[in-house]
């Protein structure tokens, strides 16, 4: 595959501008459009899979206040996993099983990278929802399911989305290691740039990845805005439900003590 075919060799004195404006750079099997498609598809798959794996379980456990220590522990181990090493270890297993260089090894490695932060942010978000609102919901006769779905998740959603966004940007920024493990995607320009000792390719590839990561953040923010109902959207994360800071004091309403000090007599 691409390891064998490699990137179309380009002269070393090509400038970035020349490279980016050359239509051949964009089209064809090794072109930017195809590579971008590969990267976006994999990243999207990883993010969706991680969210499905992390969010429901984490939200439920946090709602029940279960496995607080165990989750923290697993999350920390997960964060310590070196993604590249995991993917590299998975490649021979995948090859032996007949699944090829990709997408499984890199998909699993990236998912393992993304699940822990998503799990953690969801757990913390649900757990930190204003207890008064949750208690009130329960006292109003909400079922546990309704407490989670109509109170905890909406109020936690801002933090959950933030965790999702951070994880997504991390995935996009990490995905290029795929090119070093027999895959394609935008990482190929960095790999080929290094291979051909061509800085233009390396820098160009890096630029593309950074741009995609930034775009991912913006896109997810837009999706978040569309997904949230107004009542949730207008809440700032840092004041999810505290009572008004200022108590209005309407002194005119306060009753005067009864009785009148009418005329000033001089009784003794």
């Amino acid at each position: 595959m691409s390891l064998v075919l490699g990137q179309r060799a380009i002269p070393r004195d090509t400038t970035l501008w020349e490279w980016f404006t050359d239509p051949v750079t964009w089209t064809g099997s090794g072109g930017i459009l195809v590579s971008l498609g590969d990267t976006v598809a994999l990243c999207a798959a990883v993010i969706v899979a991680s969210a499905i794996l992390a969010v429901p379980v984490s939200a439920y456990l946090a709602h029940r206040r279960l496995a607080q220590v165990t989750s923290a522990w697993l999350v920390n181990i997960g964060r310590a996993l070196p993604t590249f090493a995991v993917a590299a270890l998975l490649v021979p297993i995948s090859l032996r099983g007949g699944y090829g260089f990709e997408p499984w090894p890199i998909f699993i490695a990236l998912t393992l990278l993304t699940v822990p932060p998503m799990f953690l942010s969801t757990y913390v978000a649900v757990k930190e929802v204003d207890e008064a609102a949750v208690n009130a919901a329960r006292a109003m006769g909400f079922t546990e399911r309704a407490v989670l779905l109509s109170v905890e998740l909406p109020l936690a959603s801002t933090v959950i989305f933030t965790g999702l966004r951070v994880a997504a940007v991390q995935v996009v920024a990490t995905e290029p290691i795929r090119a070093f493990l027999g895959g394609d995607g935008l990482g190929r320009y960095i790999r080929d740039g290094i291979g051909q000792n061509n800085a233009t390719l390396t820098v160009g590839g890096t630029f593309l990845i950074a741009a995609l990561a930034g775009l991912t953040g913006i896109t997810l923010t837009a999706i978040e805005r569309l997904a949230k109902p107004y009542g949730v959207r207008r809440l700032r994360a840092d004041r999810s439900s505290r009572p008004g800071e200022t108590d209005e004091v309407d002194v005119t309403d306060v009753a005067e003590p009864a009785g009148s000090h009418a005329a000033a007599g001089r009784l003794r």
Binding site: A139, M140, F142
Partner: peptide
């Protein structure tokens, strides 16, 4: 759940649903 729907409950922190 049904019992609580039949009993009013007010707490100090109010606990209104902010959303």
């Amino acid at each position: 759940v049904e019992l609580r729907r039949g009993i009013g409950y007010v707490i100090q922190q109010v606990g209104l649903f902010p959303h």
